[in-house]
Structures are given as C-alpha cells and as structure tokens.
C-alpha cells in the first residue's frame, strides 16, 4: 500500500551546485518500480530521478545523496527507460550532449533508498573532494584530451579492430551453426549459407513487390469492354480539366501577389 502511493507521486527536492547557490533546480525522485526489473536497476534499491541539471555528473550526484548512504552506481540517461542499457561497441565515443537528464541511482541497501526518499534536503553537488568541472576549465580539459599521440591512436585502432574481427568471426560461426538442421529438421537460411536467398533490404523487397504487381496487371484486361475505354477517355479529360483549373489558380495567385502596380 505504501509502495503504490510512492509510485504516483514524485518527491521534489532542490539540488544545489554549491552551498550558497541562490536559485537551484528542483529534481524529482521516486522509487523505480516496474513489473520486470533488470539487473542494473534492482528492485527496491533503485531511485529514479528526473530533471537533473546539465552540469551534474555522477560523482556530484553521489555527493548529493551522501546523507542517505552509499550509492552503488549512478546511471545518467537522456530519457527514463526501463530497458537494460546495452553497450554498443563503438569506435568514437558517444558525443557528450549537455542537457537535462534522468538518472537511476542504485543504493547498496534497501534501507538507504527509504532514507533517501525521506530526505528533506540534499547536499550540494560540489564537495571538498570533488568539484564539478564546468566552463573554461572543462573546455580546456576537453581540448587537451582530444589531442592524441599517434601511438595512442594506433593502439585504439588496433584494439577496436581486433575486437571487431573477433566479433564478426563469432557472428559468422553462429550463422554457420544455424545452417545445421535442428532437431525437428528445420534449416535457417542465412546470408552465407549454401541455400541461395535474397538480401533482406527495402530495395529488394520493393523490386519483388513491383514484379508481382506487374504480373497481376498483365493478367487483367483493361481495354476490353466499351465502358472501360469510355471511362479511361473520361478520366483523361478530367485530368486535363483539373490541370487547367490548377493553372488558372496559379495565374490568379501571381496576380494577387504582384498586383501589377509598377509604381
């Protein structure tokens, strides 16, 4: 009973950057309760927060909830989503977008979550040990980080390619496995198998559909009955008439907009 009440209502708390911030943002938090919990957002220990200001980082948020207890992990995301976050293997790191975020905080203990929900006040993001990096300092650091030594870049490339090659090999093997007859005698058709198939792309699909339609059309008799011929003629005339009307409209429009007043 208590739990359901919590779901409906978000609790509003002010989140300050420093102790003497004058106009802090209000963040909204509640317990993360869904039917199926994923591993990274365990039931009973996860707190959902929305409206986290753009400059806040993970450490800052841990600072803010220090009064509640130990935070196991902080997950910042653009939109609240219940699904587990899958990491895609990417070469370029995802661009860091500055914007308002949502966060899932996982506490170590269930009691800490309850404590957090009862908090009347949050600590500021900045503490003595950790200061949120913003402004010029942040940009300088970003710039300096972006300068890579050729050797570093080379290493990055090599590790990525090695992993990519391994991954693609794995995928290939998996496909090969699928080729084998399963218990009931089914065979999955894949790209590289012995059984010829077509690529599953939009283009190929459209081509096939077009062919089908053509076949259908060929079977149909269009210019056979008198009424069909008559109707097609009529259609032609109607199309012409419509075009004429459109042209007239266009000229009327020109007239209206230009008005032909030279002076």
């Amino acid at each position: 009973m208590k739990a359901t009440k919590r779901i409906q209502e978000f609790k509003a708390l002010e989140l300050k950057l420093t102790k003497d911030s004058l106009a802090p943002h209000t963040i909204y938090l509640k317990e993360h309760v869904v039917r199926e919990h994923t591993k990274d957002k365990p039931q009973g220990r996860t707190l959902l927060i929305v409206n986290i200001p753009p400059y806040a980082d993970e450490k800052g948020i841990i600072n803010a909830f220090k009064d509640a207890g130990h935070v196991q992990s902080v997950q910042l995301c653009l939109k609240p989503s219940t699904a587990e976050v899958k990491t895609v293997h990417r070469f370029l790191p995802e661009a860091n977008i500055t914007t308002f975020r949502a966060a899932y905080i996982v506490f170590k203990k269930v009691a800490e979550l309850d404590k957090a929900l009862k908090l009347q006040e949050l600590r500021p993001l900045n503490s003595d040990e950790h200061k949120v990096k913003v402004g010029i300092n942040k940009w300088i650091q970003e710039y300096n980080d972006s300068i890579l030594l050729p050797t570093t870049l080379k290493k990055n490339i090599e590790t990525f390619m090695a992993k990519f090659d391994a991954d693609s090999q794995k995928a290939e093997e998996k496909e090969k496995e699928l080729e084998q007859e399963d218990d009931e005698g089914w065979v999955t058709v894949t790209k590289k198998g012995k059984v010829q198939s077509f690529a599953r792309t939009e283009k190929v699909e459209n081509k096939i559909m077009k062919k089908e339609e053509k076949n259908k059309k060929r079977k149909e008799l269009k210019n056979f009955y008198t009424f069909q011929i008559r109707e097609s003629k009529m259609k032609n005339i109607v199309a012409l008439r419509q075009k004429f009307e459109e042209d007239k409209k266009k000229i009327a429009q020109i007239k209206q907009s230009r008005r032909f007043k030279p002076f």
Binding site: L22, A23, P24, P54, I136, N137
Partner: peptide, 16 residues
C-alpha cells in the same frame, strides 16, 4: 524555473 536557468547560464560559462 527561470531563475535556475539563469543561474545555470552562469554555471556553464564559469570563467567566461
């Protein structure tokens, strides 16, 4: 929260 937004402008542009 307009006040907070203005405060944010100041925070994001620290040093500038």
């Amino acid at each position: 929260n307009v006040q907070a937004l203005i405060e944010d402008f100041r925070i994001l542009g620290q040093g500038l």
